[in-house]
Structures are given as structure tokens and as C-alpha cells.
């Protein structure tokens, strides 16, 4: 694994997982699955405009938004790298593992700046001590989500 640091919120989640015995790691993952925010109204029925993560064994769709409004509601004058990133996911309830991965990334990354998201190490999914609990094969879904989040963030911040 690389030595590149995780963003603070993600590092905290990683520590929480690492400090638990394996069966409780699954329980925590289930909590993340249940805590994944609902897709906002404006994306309802518009999965086609979101990106499907094919690395996941169950259908998962995600979309990244890069903020273009400043804290005062005026057009954001900050450089693109300092703007906030927001993440939206859709995955069915019968895919709790996939939802749990999305929940971790949402809690750990939502609201970070473009620069911070782009700096997340690509091996982050392997730092949650989940390999033992869910098997490394299943972790590929989270790798796929993270790479797409970073790609959309890069693309959308250029456009911003």
C-alpha cells in the first residue's frame, strides 16, 4: 500500500474498521449501507444520466457535482481546485455490500474540495481492513467507484 495519507474523514473511518474484530466490521459496513443518503429528487428516474460502475456486482450508479456557488450563494470565484465536491449514489437495497462501499465513500469524501478528492490514493479501498471481512475480490467494486469519482471530479472541475 502507498504511504499517501487519506483525507481526515476517510482516515477516521479506516481506523474505526481496523479497530473492530472481523464480524463487527461487517456490522459497521451494514450501518454505512443503511446510512447512504437517498438520491435527491432531481435525479429521480434519471439513472441514464448517471454513471454505472460496472466493477460492482450489483447495479450501482453515481454522479459527481462540483459546486459553482460560493458560500454566499453568489457565483463561485474560487479556483476550481478549491470548490466542493458532492457525491450521489443509487444502489438497490438487495445490494447492501455495494451500498456500504458507497456509504463509506460518501461519508469520507462528500464536501471535500476538488484538490482533496483528486489526491485520494487509488489504493484507499484496501485500507479499511475489509479484505478479510468481505474478500478482496468484492473490494473491486469500491475501486471502480473511487476511480470514477476521481475521473468525474477532474472532468467537471475543468468545465467549472
Amino acid at each position: 500500500m502507498s504511504d499517501e495519507p487519506l483525507p481526515a474523514a476517510l482516515a477516521e473511518i479506516a481506523e474505526d474498521f481496523a479497530n473492530l474484530p472481523v464480524p463487527q466490521r461487517l456490522e459497521l459496513l451494514l450501518e454505512f449501507s443503511e446510512g447512504l443518503p437517498e438520491l435527491p429528487e432531481r435525479y429521480a428516474g434519471r439513472l441514464g444520466e448517471m454513471e454505472q460502475v460496472h466493477e460492482c456486482q450489483s447495479p450501482l450508479f453515481l454522479v459527481v457535482e462540483v459546486g459553482d456557488e460560493g458560500p454566499d450563494g453568489e457565483p463561485d470565484e474560487r479556483p476550481a481546485g478549491e470548490r466542493p465536491v458532492h457525491l450521489f449514489f443509487s444502489a438497490p437495497p438487495e445490494a447492501p455490500t455495494t451500498r456500504g462501499f458507497a456509504g463509506i465513500l460518501h461519508e469520507g469524501l462528500d464536501g471535500l474540495t476538488v484538490e482533496e478528492v483528486l489526491a485520494v490514493p487509488d489504493d484507499a479501498p484496501f485500507r479499511f481492513a475489509l479484505g478479510e471481512a468481505v474478500s478482496p475480490l468484492r473490494l473491486r467494486g469500491m475501486v471502480g467507484m473511487l476511480s470514477r469519482i476521481k475521473r468525474q471530479t477532474a472532468l467537471k472541475s475543468q468545465a467549472a
Binding site: L29, S33, Q57, E94, P96, T97, A133, V134
Partner: peptide, 22 residues
């Protein structure tokens, strides 16, 4: 199940989990 957590979201009463991977 394929999904390792699906059992934990609710299962048939009396059932135990047997994960193909683990």
C-alpha cells in the same frame, strides 16, 4: 448469497449465513 451482507439485512427465521467466499 452473492452479497455477503444481504443475510444481515434480514433473513428467513432460523437461517445461518454460509458465505461462498469466506
Amino acid at each position: 448469497d452473492e452479497d455477503v451482507l444481504l443475510y444481515d439485512t434480514g433473513h428467513i427465521p432460523g437461517a445461518l449465513k454460509l458465505d461462498w467466499h469466506q
